[in-house]
Simulated assay, not measured.
Amino acid sequence: MLQCKHAQEFSFGPRALKDALISTNPALQELYVKAFSSAEKLFLSEAYNPQRTLFCSLLIRTAFDWLLSHPDAPEDFETFYHSMLRRKQNFYRKHIYLQPIGNVGQENMVCIISSFFLGLRVKCLPSIPVSSIHCCYRHCRDSDRVQLHADGILNFLKNNKPMDALCVLGLTLLDLYPCETWSFTFSKFLPGQGGICI
């Protein structure tokens, strides 16, 4: 069992944030100047303002927080930018499709996801009822809520993937489970196909 630790503060100075967001690479700095609007630049400049109110220090309270129990290497903009070049989409497969399953609010979802996947188009498919997927389900032991088997949904998404899709992301408000021994999962993915998440 994890031991509780004292609260830990993750803090980065203005210079470190500026390097992380904009990079020290002159070519990427020039790209930043050309690509972002004045409003976007103003928002990002707040990150390296010593009196900033946005991008505040992050307080990690216990060892159960994700950052302490699952440490990840930090990624700056330059690393992210170069990894995007290696992951260029196929000429024909350049869309991320969202597949709502059941009653899922779709407001602003396309816009939000588009902002994270530069150069790709995001499209929302019509919502489908759970009954049309024909996947296994069960009642959760703890809450008696219905849970859907993630593999059945992934098979449905894979078999109904549009020809121009890079991937399809299924979205549902119902609980998921990956196998009988697990009580739940937040998401599951098939490499190169797509995934399902709650």
Score class of each variant (00 low, 15 high):
residue 98 L to T: 04
residue 60 I to T: 07
residue 133 I to R: 02
residue 143 S to A: 03
residue 97 Y to F: 15
residue 112 I to V: 14
residue 182 W to I: 05
residue 129 P to S: 09
residue 48 Y to L: 03
residue 151 D to H: 08
residue 36 F to D: 05
residue 5 K to F: 10
residue 125 L to M: 14
residue 83 S to P: 04
residue 55 F to Y: 12
residue 65 D to S: 10
residue 154 L to E: 04
residue 30 E to Q: 10
residue 182 W to Q: 15
residue 34 K to A: 08
residue 121 R to P: 01
residue 66 W to N: 12
residue 42 L to C: 10
residue 151 D to Q: 10
residue 190 L to Y: 10
residue 32 Y to C: 05
residue 139 H to K: 13
residue 190 L to E: 09
residue 37 S to T: 15
residue 166 L to A: 11
residue 144 D to F: 07
residue 144 D to A: 12
residue 122 V to P: 01
residue 1 M to L: 13
residue 4 C to H: 13
residue 121 R to H: 11
residue 73 A to I: 05
residue 107 E to C: 06
residue 15 R to W: 08
residue 31 L to N: 07
residue 104 V to Q: 00
residue 181 T to I: 08
residue 55 F to E: 04
residue 73 A to D: 08
residue 137 Y to R: 05
residue 16 A to H: 07
residue 171 L to Q: 01
residue 135 C to G: 01
residue 189 F to P: 00
residue 101 I to R: 00
residue 82 H to N: 14
residue 115 S to R: 14
residue 143 S to D: 09
residue 79 T to W: 05
residue 62 T to R: 05
residue 99 Q to H: 03
residue 122 V to K: 00
residue 49 N to S: 08
residue 52 R to L: 03
residue 59 L to N: 12
residue 187 S to F: 06
residue 111 C to P: 00
residue 152 G to D: 00
residue 189 F to M: 12
residue 193 Q to N: 09
residue 103 N to S: 09
residue 184 F to Q: 07
residue 172 T to A: 00
residue 145 R to I: 05
residue 73 A to N: 09
residue 108 N to T: 13
residue 76 D to A: 03
residue 167 C to P: 00
residue 41 K to G: 02
residue 146 V to E: 06
residue 47 A to D: 02
residue 145 R to H: 08
residue 92 Y to N: 15
residue 167 C to K: 02
residue 146 V to K: 08
residue 162 P to T: 02
residue 53 T to G: 04
residue 2 L to D: 04
residue 5 K to E: 09
residue 15 R to Q: 14
residue 21 L to I: 07
residue 62 T to V: 00
residue 149 H to E: 15
residue 133 I to H: 02
residue 86 R to S: 10
residue 153 I to V: 14
residue 101 I to T: 03
residue 48 Y to E: 03
residue 13 G to H: 06
residue 174 L to S: 06
residue 138 R to L: 04
residue 64 F to H: 13
residue 118 L to F: 13
residue 66 W to H: 12
